[in-house]
């Protein structure tokens, strides 16, 4: 069987299964439309820790442990941990991996990390290099604000294109197809995916990340459809990570330019996680946005049979305050994973 189609797309010979997910979110996310789906909603986003950074790494660790617990597994039974977050030197993932002491490969794909980890984990399992892989991503509103924007107590207005970083951690447990132990999900398989290219159409506005990422999402989708020789209608739903309301609009526009009709199949995690009544401008963003929406909500819907084929395409704005101050634009990336119900 040919495992590689074209330059970017892969298909798995023995598709790995997503056996379980674990999620934990902050209170604002808990008040959103998906509130009841999350495993744990924190009322205090420092979670009893001295700093938000410490709280965020505890969330990462906790989300992984939740997913494992659903399969009655302990960290030593896991072959590999793949994950990342938004902070410099991905400290959240590094320090959580120290606690979990699972062999660890740290990833940075900004908000695309959940798809990146699922894609890599599936490839490693299909390649025979691992049997059980935990994939995780986190973000935290307060740690992201102070790293990328302004101090919380600084008075000022957000622009209408701004998005709110989701406080949340999501983890998925991937297992080799022969696995027969306890599991939360029995039917969800990762059958392939497309590795994104870094695409940059010169957006420099750090409070318009949806527009910065939309070209990458459209590029990855086009590559996927072209290389896999399939069409949008082969999927029940195409889920992007955190384009937000305006980014989704631009994504649809760019797809139209490429001759792709999204046929009302496009959904965006950034639009799902908050309701417009919550004052979040254009929606949610951050690694945690797609991670918690996938693991808490989308996978459950899929397991129930609400959809059988989903293209999960998390999008990342690879921005850096340093590059931004030097006048660079914001590169975007999007990775796609094909999830099928079997």
């Amino acid at each position: 069987m040919q495992k590689r189609l074209g330059k970017q797309t892969v298909v798995f010979e023995a598709p790995p299964r997503i056996a379980a997910g674990g999620t934990i979110v902050g209170d604002v996310e808990g008040e959103g439309p998906l509130g009841s789906y999350f495993d744990l909603v924190l009322q205090d986003d420092t979670w009893g820790e001295e700093s938000w950074e410490k709280a965020e790494r505890k969330m990462f660790e906790h989300a992984v442990r939740r997913a494992l617990a659903r399969c009655a597994m302990q960290p030593p039974q896991i072959d590999l941990l793949l994950g990342g977050d938004l902070l410099n030197q991905i400290i959240t993932a590094n320090f959580a991996a120290r606690e979990l002491s699972i062999p660890f490969l740290g990833l940075y794909g900004a908000c695309s990390t959940m798809a990146e980890s699922l894609l890599l984990g599936s490839m490693l399992i299909d390649g025979g290099y691992a049997e059980r892989v935990a994939c995780a991503a986190t973000s935290h509103f307060c740690t992201a604000e102070r790293q990328y924007r302004f101090p919380l107590e600084m008075g000022g207005q957000t622009t209408p294109t701004a998005q709110r970083t989701v406080t949340g951690a999501g983890a998925s447990l991937l297992v080799a197809p022969g696995y027969a132990g306890n599991a939360q999900f029995e039917h969800i398989f990762a059958t392939g995916g497309t590795i994104g290219r870094v695409v940059d159409l010169g957006i420099t506005d750090a409070s318009n990340m949806g527009a910065a990422m939309a070209p990458a999402a459209a590029d990855t989708l086009a590559a996927h459809l072209r290389e896999k020789e399939c069409s949008v209608t082969d999927y029940d739903v195409i889920v992007t990570g955190d384009l937000g309301r305006f980014g989704s609009e631009m994504f649809a526009e760019l797809c139209r330019d490429k001759g792709i009709d999204l046929a009302n199949r496009h959904q965006d995690c950034g639009n799902m996680i908050f309701s417009p009544a919550q004052k979040v401008d254009c929606g949610g963003s951050g690694c945690g946005c797609s991670a918690v929406t996938l693991n808490a909500y989308l996978l459950k819907r899929m397991e129930q049979g609400d959809f059988t084929r989903m293209l999960f395409m998390a999008t990342g704005a690879l921005m850096s305050p340093t590059a931004g101050m030097q006048g660079d634009s914001i590169p975007g990336i999007a990775h796609a994973v094909v999830l099928e119900r079997r």
């Binding site: 207005q157 622009t159 209408p160 294109t161 159409l201 010169g202 957006i203 318009n208 527009a211 070209p215 309301r245 305006f246 609009e249 631009m250 526009e253 760019l254 254009c282």
Partner: peptide, 15 residues
């Protein structure tokens, strides 16, 4: 790039 930036500018929600 020019075309995209123009599009974004036109469609962007404004305060």
């Amino acid at each position: 790039e020019q075309r995209y930036q123009q599009q974004v500018k036109e469609k962007m929600p404004r305060s």
